[in-house]
């Protein structure tokens, strides 16, 4: 289905991926393809394996069975493939994870300078352009602790973008934010989507999913239970599990 969006090779391919934490089977035969420039929203109850799934895509977690291919590179123990993946895939965490001992600008230039080996002046220029894009260039000289949660999360997005990734992963980027800051982060992500970034985003923001997602994937207990366009999924859920989940989400909001 997703390959038909464009004719190219998929950005991400998961083929019967299985993962265990000890005896806990957290990913069960997960297969999924994400086409270039496709935006996929992953949702599901807490503990269903959403974080584990997207952390496997940039190999913060290792899977034990199955195949994961990202932008044509299969994820293996080979460190060279790891380096390639980490350059191509940016990640934004729920808890921002900015480096508190570095300024906003230094947070953004660290990887370009040390991994991409870009000269410092050029890296700073690049960082400023992305900070402008997330609308906080004036905070460049401050430290993360001096910024609000929403601002920190936008810096985290800029930091990931500075590596010029082809794919962006988001793990509940707005869950740790106060309600009044959620919009500024979502707007940033919408802007990114409009520019054609390939995105996999774990979120329960249904409005965002409707507006941006090409496809919504619903996970429960380590499996992909259902997937489809936002309209199909939200208006016409096929499984009881998704119905239950949606009713809980709606009640919560």
């Amino acid at each position: 289905m997703s390959q038909s969006v464009t004719g190219e090779a998929p950005a991400i391919l998961l083929d019967k991926v299985n993962k265990w934490f000890g005896v806990l089977h957290v990913l069960r035969d997960v297969s999924m393809t994400v086409a270039q420039k496709e935006k996929v929203v992953v949702c599901g109850p807490s503990g269903s394996g959403k974080s584990t799934l997207i952390r496997c895509i940039n190999r913060l977690e290792t899977h034990q069975e199955g195949r994961i291919v990202v932008d044509g590179t299969e994820l293996t123990d080979d460190t060279r493939s790891l380096d390639t993946i980490r350059r191509e895939v940016g990640m934004v965490f729920q808890s921002f994870n900015l480096f508190p001992h570095l300024t906003i600008l230094e947070n953004c230039t660290l990887a370009p300078i040390w991994v991409r080996k870009i000269p410092k002046a050029e890296a700073e220029e690049l960082a400023m352009s992305f900070l402008t894009r997330v609308k906080i260039p004036e905070q460049a000289k401050k430290y993360p602790g001096q910024l609000s949660g929403g601002q920190q999360q936008r810096v985290a997005i800029a930091r990931a973008l500075c590596m010029r990734p082809k794919i962006m992963l988001f793990d509940e980027p707005t869950s740790a934010l106060d309600p009044e800051m959620i919009k500024e982060v979502l707007d940033t992500m919408i802007g990114l989507a409009e520019d054609g970034m390939t995105m996999v985003c774990v979120t329960h923001e249904m409005g965002f999913a409707r507006q941006v997602a090409d496809r919504v994937v619903f996970m429960d207990r380590g499996e992909i239970v259902e997937s489809g366009t936002p309209a199909e999924m939200f208006e016409n859920p096929q499984t009881d599990r998704l119905q239950l989940f949606l009713s809980q989400i709606l009640r919560g909001h």
């Binding site: 980490r86 895939v89 940016g90 808890s95 040390w114 991994v115």
Partner: peptide, 26 residues
């Protein structure tokens, strides 16, 4: 926090850079 290690991994820093630039200074 574990997040600091993961963020350093995610932006592609190798082991020694991760330690030298992110983890040890803190």
């Amino acid at each position: 926090p574990k997040g600091q290690y993961e963020a350093a991994d995610a932006i592609g820093l190798g082991y020694w850079r991760k330690m030298g630039l992110v983890i040890l200074p803190q």
